[in-house]
Design a binder for these strands. Structure first.
Lengths: 388, 388
DNA sequence: CCCATTTATTGTGGAGTCCATAGATAGTCA
DNA sequence: TGACTATCTATGGACTCCACAATAAATGGG
């Protein structure tokens, strides 16, 4: 609840922003009268604001719709194509770059495969190749980007440094902002990948509009992230959702035990879990038991977070969420003995672009913040700045 | 980040509010020039705003300080005595009502002793007697109150209803807003007592200004509450910080086990814990071991919250926090094996008025919200309204 | 085809708020 | 007493919003 106040021009800016927001959040183009009603301004003032925004390229007039009574009104829409942001997902097995417009719609993407043995320089090079591919595919160039956010595995602190990673020995300490800042001249943010997946679900996925939620990354490397009061919860040092570190939850070993179950014995570990889920779907008692055991452990850590936070929703994401038809009921059953009220549980709606899309959402958030800050102006973010 | 905008009078209102906030947050009275610098407004505008605020009784002029160069400047201060709020703590053993000014400073209080066998009607009657006593002591009457908040034991939902209580069988379902609304004509809010204690610590106590913290209520009935992003975290149904419900933490029985330790065997349970802590302070090995066991269990639940949230600070409150000199180091040791980073732990600074003060803080928050809402005016809250 | 009805657009004047600037005022210091 | 400094006071200009009246463009009925 920040009170800003200021100048008459600041007032005009605030009114422009509230008009812009109204147009952006509306599903259909709005007439001047509708916009006046939504912003609470008089019609005259809305005309001033709208012509101004139109000249600056923020909104566009669309064909008036005929057929109603009276003189047809001009209609205006938000121009989501006025600017673009870049979201990057740096994972163990892939690097994915996505370019979206200001509404978060994907325009293009670039993908480069890597693996757990890829060294830091090669991984960074892969990042740049993915970005270039996405830029080429979109027809844009680097200076057209208004913001960039990067999702990385590991714990990311407030300065955007990766501080702790389990799987990639040479990844901690990498300065992604410094690296990408050499070629990109817009604000750059770094965040943990699970956190960005949670953000994507809250903005574009099954958790649209939910204020408090726990995101579970159920996969070979379990994790969790939190959206609290509608915002990503970063924590003091970035290490949130780490309940799996409590040995009693069994999170450290639960995925391996699932892959070791008789239904998948002997298959390569990357396919094992899928086989177990398939077997369970076919009614195999051993597979069902293995999944119940997995769900039991997943529920222990989840219960710790749910009892702490009492969220409205739990989103089941990660690779295993593809088998939500089997896993979700088991998780629900396993949570019941622990929770006062088992929250709604929904499987992730977004695919493997989840993290990159969440990164784009975070970049959009920062663009927004710049607009709405007291000294910001309604124009594209200008100065290259380091964000964390 | 709510964009408001509006007409010229709304702009004036915003500028008045930012001036008011600047004066309230300043430690000393400010001159017009200083105020202009802090608000970013021109001197002329500040004069307009300030004379207006003075006429409405929000600020007062103080004697100019001589001795400097140039013409002595008028100085203005926020009038914290312009309004008052009431905070009520309804506990098992006492009802405490506190009246504070707009700065959260206690003016008067009223206290009535009750016990676990007091039935609901008598407890509600005690609430009213405590309120009347506080009013009499302050020289105010009910219509002078701008806001009321009540801290109750048990889970409190968004509608302000008490939904779940362990110790008082006839307390769930009590409609405190309806009851007090019969005699008080200002907005009334109800919240869980531990949550309010946490709020008090964040506003007036050891956690001043900390954005993310976990409040531990270490006492005969353990509990926890969270401040996240500078605001009280209520949760979807009000049941946050309930990690103690996980049987593996041992929270349900840890206090009884402490009271049962040899150092206090045979003493009345209300004094037992104090005796154990005293014995530990004197070096008694059995007492030290009992405290280590207690700290171990307290740490299990705390670790679940800390790993989930990665807070900056843990505040140790509740009755046992009087023995923080013994308990805090034990808790720190017990947390270390579980946490990546053990947060700063500080003992509560506020005494047993903690909950009532937190209630006053919450009432002040609601008064503030009314000021800063787009359609609010800079005047005392008018209409009686139910808050939850 | 013309006209009443409905809704949107355009134009004018007034009120409120903020700002820049210049001159008057009230202290201190030599 | 007179220079100096910072504050107070007054005036005019610029900007933004609003209310109201007149004009314009569509529909639908006679």
């Amino acid at each position: 609840m920040q009170v800003s106040g200021g100048d008459l021009q600041r007032l005009r800016q605030l009114n422009s922003l509230s008009s812009l927001r109204a147009l952006r959040e509306a599903t259909d183009p709005l007439t001047l009268t509708e916009l006046a009603a939504r912003t609470g301004l008089s019609r005259n003032s809305v005309i001033d604001v709208v012509t101004d925004l139109q000249e600056r390229g923020w909104i566009a007039e669309v064909e008036p719709t005929m057929g109603g009574m009276g003189r047809p009104a001009k209609r205006y829409r938000f121009r989501a194509d006025a600017g673009h942001v870049l979201g990057i997902d740096i994972g163990v097995h892939k690097v994915l770059a996505v370019i979206t417009d200001l509404a978060g719609r994907t325009l293009s993407s670039g993908r480069v495969a890597v693996d757990r043995h890829t060294a830091r320089p090669e991984r960074l090079e892969a990042v740049w190749r993915a970005v270039e591919a996405a830029l080429v595919a979109s027809g844009l160039s680097a200076p057209d980007l208004w913001g960039v956010a990067i999702g990385s595995i590991g714990v990311v602190n407030r300065e955007g440094l990766v501080t702790r990673v389990n799987d990639l020995p040479d990844w901690p300490g990498v300065d992604l902002i410094g690296h990408l800042g050499q070629r990109l001249s817009c604000p750059i943010t770094v965040e943990n990948d699970s956190k960005l997946a949670a953000l994507a679900e809250q903005r574009l996925g099954v958790a649209a509009g939910v204020r408090d939620l726990v995101y579970l990354h159920a996969g070979r490397r379990p994790g969790a992230a939190l959206i609290l009061n509608g915002r990503l919860h970063h924590g003091f040092s970035g290490a949130t959702g780490e309940v799996g570190l409590m040995e009693m939850t069994g999170w450290r070993t639960m995925a391996a035990r699932l892959e070791d179950s008789p239904a998948a014995r002997g298959t390569p570990p990357q396919e094992a879990a899928g086989l177990v889920f398939a077997a369970a779907r076919a009614g195999d008692p051993g597979a069902l038991a293995a999944i119940d055991t997995y769900a039991h452990h997943l529920a222990l850590g989840t219960a710790a977070m749910v009892l702490t936070l009492d969220p409205e929703l739990v989103v089941l994401g990660g690779g295993f969420s593809r088998s939500a038809d089997v896993l979700l009921p088991a998780l629900h059953r396993a949570l019941e003995p622990h929770c006062l009220r088992v929250p709604d549980i929904r499987p992730s709606a977004l695919g493997e672009e989840c993290v990159a899309l969440g990164a784009a959402c975070l970049a959009l958030d920062h663009v927004d913040e710049q607009f709405f800050s007291p000294d910001g102006s309604i124009s594209r973010p200008a100065a290259p700045r380091r964000h964390a």
